[in-house]
Design a protein around this nucleic acid. Structure first.
Length: 211
DNA sequence: AAGTACCA
DNA sequence: TGGG
């Protein structure tokens, strides 16, 4: 085991960041625009909202989801929920998003959860582990759209030492294998560094098996 | 418990 | 700006 995801070998320009595989420029502009259209439809059905952490602090990132389960948080804790806060089921995961999972995840089962995170000006996400999923052997796939984002990846046991890299629109990352529980976060974005979103900001899509 | 401030 |  070299600490990378096996799928990295299929992509010649893959970059390793503490065991997380990044595929720069995986999606071309046309694919990014098509996916963004699909995500706007998701957000229309299940609007972005700002969640509160169990400690009572507001997250700067706005979130929604698609698929059977979406991640939510409030003062009671983090959890996956089968409905959004208004009680309606999450929209279906768009086909454009599932296509990316099938290309890079290295597994033959489709994800049941697609989290959609919007980073406006000044938004960030502190270092954390994705460990609320029922079975931690499935990978997590992350797709970046819009503004550049400084992605930080630490270790599996501890957040530090960490390495960082600027993610660009169209980059795809796989958090799996030995790095599945790696600490990771977004230090900051370069607001309006991309013109994909006319309103500015970054959309991050993550695919996973939650249940 | 997915937060910031702040330091070099 | 990177990092603890």
């Amino acid at each position: 085991m070299d600490g990378r995801n096996g799928v990295a070998d299929l992509f010649s320009d893959a970059v390793d960041l503490n065991g997380v595989t990044i595929m720069p420029g995986h999606l071309d502009r046309r694919a990014q625009e098509a996916m963004l259209d699909d995500l706007r439809a998701v957000a229309k059905a299940a609007p972005f909202r700002q969640y509160e952490t169990p400690g009572g602090r507001q997250m700067s990132v706005r979130m929604t989801a698609a698929g059977a389960r979406g991640w939510v948080t409030d003062r009671k804790g983090y959890r996956y929920a089968e409905t959004s806060f208004d009680g309606s089921p999450w929209p279906d995961i768009p086909a454009s998003v599932l296509t990316v999972w099938r290309q890079v995840s290295g597994v033959d089962r489709d994800p049941d959860s697609c989290l959609v995170n919007f980073y406006g000006e000044g938004a960030r996400m502190g270092l954390h582990q994705d460990k609320d999923e029922a079975d931690l052997h499935w990978p997590v796939v992350s797709i970046s759209l819009g503004d550049d984002a400084l992605f930080r990846v630490g270790g599996v046991e501890t957040p530090t030492p960490s390495k960082s890299r600027w993610l660009k629109s169209g980059d795809v990352a796989v958090i799996g294998g030995a790095a599945r529980l790696a600490w990771h976060g977004i230090d900051r974005i370069k607001f309006r560094s991309s013109d994909l979103l006319p309103e500015g900001g970054r959309v991050n899509v993550t695919l996973r098996m939650a249940g």
